[in-house]
Amino acid sequence: MNHENTDLVLATRQFTVLLSSTRRGARLARLLTERQLADWGQPFDAAAQVVAELAGNAVLHGRVPGRDFRLTLALSGAGTLRIAVTDTRGERLPHVTQGDAPDAESGRGLLLVEAYADRWGVDLGPVPRKTVWAELEVGRERASGVRRHGL
């Protein structure tokens, strides 16, 4: 490993935990995010909202009985926080419900993710998993408007 790569590795902080695919597990994901970011000396309000939505979706739409979901937080030295939630329902992809479907029963929560995150998307695999991720530039003011997502 060269010196440049060593600096990059040392500049990234990471936290990963498996949680039960229950409402309690989703709540714990949010609480652990708040605590971990506080320990890292980072603001956590926006990240906690994103984690609450992604963990809630993993429990509601990605749950397979007996299988956990994984929460990963990675803070780069450049100030980008990557939130990733992995579940075992790779065939059920998230979608955003736009304003033309106000009576839709799901999808509106991802509008919150779009509002808080600078980027978000979905990575498939390995089968049967999917990972829904969001990236936030820590300490940057959120501008109003639509965010880009990678679906």
Rank of each mutant, 00 (worst) to 15 (best):
M1F: 04
E4P: 04
N5A: 14
N5Q: 15
T6Y: 11
D7W: 07
A11N: 12
T12Q: 03
R13A: 10
R13D: 03
Q14G: 04
F15I: 10
T16L: 08
T16M: 07
T16Y: 08
V17A: 13
V17N: 14
L18E: 15
L18D: 15
S21M: 11
T22C: 12
R23H: 15
R24M: 09
G25L: 07
G25A: 06
A26T: 00
A29M: 11
E34N: 05
R35I: 00
L37I: 08
A38D: 08
D39S: 05
D39G: 06
W40Q: 03
W40V: 02
G41S: 05
P43A: 07
D45I: 00
D45V: 06
A46Q: 03
A46I: 00
Q49I: 11
V50T: 01
V50Y: 09
V51F: 08
V51E: 10
A52E: 08
A52K: 10
A52P: 06
A55Q: 05
G56C: 01
N57K: 05
A58G: 09
L60V: 07
H61F: 10
H61C: 07
G62A: 07
V64T: 10
P65W: 03
G66T: 12
R67G: 04
R67Y: 03
D68T: 14
T72W: 10
T72F: 10
L73E: 14
L73C: 06
A74L: 11
A74E: 13
S76V: 00
S76D: 12
I83D: 01
A84N: 13
V85L: 06
T86L: 05
D87M: 01
D87T: 09
T88E: 13
R89N: 13
G90P: 07
L93T: 07
L93H: 14
V96N: 14
V96P: 15
T97W: 06
D100M: 06
A101P: 05
D103P: 09
D103M: 08
G107M: 04
G107H: 02
G107A: 05
G109R: 01
L110T: 09
L110A: 06
L112N: 01
V113D: 04
E114A: 08
A115R: 13
D118T: 10
D118V: 05
D118Q: 06
W120H: 02
V122C: 06
D123C: 03
D123G: 04
L124D: 14
L124F: 11
G125Q: 01
G125M: 06
P126K: 09
V127A: 14
V127R: 13
R129C: 11
V132E: 03
E135L: 11
V138P: 01
V138D: 08
G139E: 00
G139L: 12
E141W: 05
R142W: 11
S144P: 13
R147V: 11
R147M: 11
H149R: 01
